[in-house]
Design a protein around this nucleic acid. Sequence first.
RNA 1: GCGGACGUGGCGAAACUGGUAGACGCAAGAGACUUAAAAUCUCUCGGGUUAUCCCGUGCGGGUUCGAUCCCCGCCGUCCGCACCA
Length: 876
Amino acid sequence: MFSDRYNPREAEPKWQKIWDERQTFRTENNDPRPKYYVLEMFPYPSGRIHMGHVRNYAMGDVVARYKRARGMNVLHPMGWDAFGMPAENAAMQNNTHPATWTYQNIATMRAQLKSMGLSLDWSREIATCDPSYYKHQQRMFLDFLRAGIVDRKQAKVNWDPVDHTVLANEQVIDGRGWRSGALVEQRELTQWFFRITDYAQDLLDSLQTLDRWPEKVRLMQQNWIGRSEGLLVRFEMAPGSSKGSALEIEVYTTRPDTLFGAKFIAIAADHPLAREAAADKPELAAFIQECRRVGTSVAALETAEKKGFDTGLRVTHPFDPSWTLPVYVANFVLMDYGTGAIFGCPAHDQRDLDFARHYDLGATPVVCPPGQDLSTFLIEFTAYDGDGTLINSRFLDGLTPSQAQDQVASRLEQAMLGGRPQAQRRVNFKLRDWGVSRQRYWGCPIPIIHCEACGVVPVPAEELPVELPADVTFDRPGNPLERHPTWKNVSCPKCGAAARRETDTMDTFVDSSWYFARFTDPANNAAPTTRSAVDGWLPVDQYIGGIEHAILHLLYSRFFTRAMRDTGHVGLAEPFAGLFTQGMVVHETYRDEEGHWLSPVEIDIETEANTRVAFRKSDRRPVSIGGIEKMSKSKRNTVDPDDIIADYGADTARLFMLSDSPPDRDVIWSEEGVQGAARFVQQLWRLVGSIANIAAPAGSLVSGVDEPQASEVRRIAHRHLMRAQEHIERLRFNTAVAELRKLANALSGLIGDITETPVSHQTALAYREAGEILVAMLAPMMPHLGEECWSRLGHDGLLSDASWPVADPALAAEDTIVIPVQINGKKRAELIVSKNANPATLEEEALKLEAVQNALDGRIVKKVIVVPQRIVNVVA
RNA sequence: GCGGACGUGGCGAAACUGGUAGACGCAAGAGACUUAAAAUCUCUCGGGUUAUCCCGUGCGGGUUCGAUCCCCGCCGUCCGCACCA
């Protein structure tokens, strides 16, 4: 046969154009078929797509195309997470406007995504930086404000003194601003907050309902929310101790059972009492300053010694008026958890022990481990935090810690101090309210006006959106909105007096917290959502993205959906019914003799004596092959999707991203792997060609006709179809590809065996059916090849409009099966039997086998275990 | 420190719910075709002094007729959180 090669360079643009012209993937809201919403995390328009995008969108597209073929009304939209700092950084560096930069990137990346042949409904495209999007976000901000979900309060934030802006915790590296390198300061600023903590319990409880989420993500969110049950206990100032206003110190503890082991009280450096005590103690004031400076650095926290400063104050033990405890300011106590004060029990908390050893405060054990002799039980270097029996604890002696906790709580709830119960049970969360204020330009303006007389005044709904001014400068650090000559000067909507516009913008995570809802009716100009549309489409049936969003984006979206529900914008709480977190794309790294990183396109790899060696293309100098790492610009181990698509075609790139590695694990990009995928594309093309050559054009298959060859073809086609379906349903794309390869191999083998031509009518029809099954199976992964093959098989319409073949289990079933026969658990023989053979027959047939008798060697059969259709095990 | 995941050929991996370990592929080797190369096709490919046998899923135990899978204890790798009282 003459050259029969599939040419993706011609075919792919052709089919993309046809899909586009016929609006094949446009989705209507009022379609009667069952809905399926598949969504991949939308990209940040950074400039160009990378291989991670290719992997993410290839997976989503398989699901979308598959569900579509199975007769569902599939929503598969795409948009842009378009606000954010890189646009401002680019503006500063290149003197372009953030909007220009962003929209250029969007245009580039849209074209790249289109070249992948994704079945997206582009008519629903949204960009979060578009006023038609953020207008609704501003409206919801005001709805939330009215509903008490938005708060304005003072908070400690990371302040970069060089760039004049607040930084997120992630942007502070070793205590320094990631851009400026300046030491970050802690500042008290008034900021806007979303009251996510009001939803903490529900966000935690509802994790249990997310049974199609990875366990790992649920656990991470659970830990992040960080619920703990404990006790608030107030310690009275010892007589003559208090010089200031405070009469007591309130601590939070989860271990009230260890109260008789208390040796000290420690308060945070920012505790009001610490400040008060520092007023007449310069050394203490200096210590507090020191704590604040070190406070943010993670590295410093790891190594920091437990340090404190004795305030000279003393408090009384709640159960013994004659027992007083010293009060320290300590560097390891956090102001923003619990009450910012603790009681220290050195024997049963390692941090307290470290601290107590430093200041010689003692460590009386009060919980004795099981089996330990209490007279010899000593705490030296390691605190004991396990279970046991209470000792040295007066009325608690002999109880378990949990009994003692309850006992202490009950007693102190009864005891009165200053006219109130001395203690109170309290559930505490690590989760903090979500600070959304950012002193940046390229974000959604917060629609608020500050009036001298009226205070905080919402921008009236009819004046939304509050649009970003276009004429801004980036020649200096800080917020361009703040120094814009006119933008912030407005009159108060309430009293008409001169007022000031809020110049902070929203955290970009707000933008991505509801875009999935907006996709359901992106053209609604009057409201963020159309209830009939959003309630019909949500939840997202399958959400796919990187694990790096396990907490932030996914938790914020869960919160935001609840807030939208409580303000009437949606009718549910959980936006994502199914979540899948895909692995990264990784690649080998290369360095030249000077240690400079080299890109894969700069080198050649050869095999010498069974070892792979690399050379630089330009001068043939040796290159060392390094570890396999996440593709990154700094290590230069990236591969440009455009290059791959130009060289091999989108289908090959997609196929490779889906094969070999399980989708939740990292996939290693390799030239050999891509070539293997490309070979398979060609193999499929040739196979479909062979089938097209023998297939009869008309007539229909008749079941029950005894034509072994036809039955065999149908059997393998239906069997692999069934299995491939299962793999796709479970998002096991690597095994789905394997199933496709098995079918292709089997069909190639059968076709190669054909000696008689022409084949019988039934056999020809069976091949035709098998060919269509093959093409249907490959199409979700390789859609362009799918269409090309479909038309090669003689179809006029689009495969994208055709329905999925119906797998027939009866046709797939085999009449006879091979069953292993074991003796004492070791395989000794095989038994070929009818599929439906009953256990008695199986046992009888197995024992008759010569191999079995030989292996038994005269031993007496004690027992025979028969698992029909699986195994026979002879116990001798 | 706390929490979690993972550990199978030279490599990526597969194995349903405890039932033939290594499917499918990559790399490698041998051969066919070709003037040659590419492409394609055929065969081999966990280990063992070559077998109707033995060993083998990180290591050591256990449960079971039977364990990659379940239980206990180690070792290693990776990830998340991290002074959260």
